[in-house]
Design a protein around this nucleic acid. Structure first.
Lengths: 161, 161
DNA sequence: CCATGTTATATAACGTGTTATGAATTGATC
DNA sequence: GATCAATTCATAACACGTTATATAACATGG
């Protein structure tokens, strides 16, 4: 059956990018499911931001992820619930709420950094390797590549196994 | 403020593609808002599929868009409500529900094809023109390009205006 | 022909993004 | 110092994707 969105080219580029992104996240989820904590792949960027940049206010976190503030507020609530993150009112400005990794959050990030993120990165790199040329062609190659072998079948031996 | 998702490269490619896709759809929405019918940009691919392929059962529609069946079922309900689409039980197999454009749906598609889709296509092509090289670099160029000038500022004179 | 398995769609619940808006705090101006 | 604007976060409502599951219709084998 014809893939209409692919056929429409630039006209449906937005839909197409979203679709590929969702599939990549779903594929990555399978690799993340091995970790101790049950957490969706979409929550990891927030943890990674705190890991890279240190404690941040909600609004700063939103900026660093290019998301809206309400979206970040909700994610933070979820992560607080899971005890991966801590949120305390700032002293000097009581409107601000500083978010930081808890010890448990640090542990999760450290484990992920060591054991899972390198695998995801390497699998995605494998998927995208040798891509060149026009964007639409590269996207088609990614779609075909994922259909042929999802990320978890692209694990290289020796990569942080 | 550092864009963490961009910095993380292949590791966050899924989040990044979704994010760019959402922005493209939001930008396209502005161009579509000029039409008679208030409809989200994400619904147009379904109409385009029916226009290209003719009447389809719900499951076939899902296949042609690479979406899941429940998602398509919901969109169809919405479009039926707007009288853009008609859904009737198939005679030979009463489990199947054939979906087709109504006269109003055809009119909308025709107007869009003539007046808006070419503009979107041309604006996106403008955004992506001269892109080459590694995927991550092209994505960065798209992000920067959209930030500098959203789609509605990339309308070429003379394109189905 | 009936029982059983398969297929097509519907529905419910959830995840995660958005916009719009409200409430609390801060800052600035008269 | 009181008032008014701006900033920060929270909340509600919506959009649209997913998975899991129910229901109805079809198909097949005894």
């Amino acid at each position: 059956m014809e893939d209409v969105i692919r056929s429409l080219g630039y006209l449906c580029l937005g839909s197409r990018l979203k679709r590929i992104g969702e599939q990549l996240q779903a594929d990555a989820q399978q690799l993340l499911d091995g970790l101790e904590v049950p957490l969706q792949s979409s929550q990891y960027p927030l943890l990674a931001a705190l890991d890279r940049l240190g404690p941040l206010a909600v609004g700063e976190l939103a900026q660093s992820l290019r998301l809206t503030q309400p979206g970040v507020t909700r994610s933070v609530s979820l992560l607080v619930e899971l005890e991966l993150v801590e949120a305390v009112q700032s002293d000097d400005d009581q409107r601000r709420k500083m978010v930081s990794l808890t010890a448990k959050g640090h542990r999760l990030v450290d484990v992920a950094k060591r054991s899972v993120w390198p695998r995801i990165e390497s699998a995605v790199a494998d998927l995208c390797q040798d891509l060149s040329g026009p964007l639409l062609d590269q996207l088609a190659a990614i779609e075909d590549g994922l259909a042929a072998a999802p990320l978890d079948r692209r694990l290289k031996k020796g990569v942080a196994q």
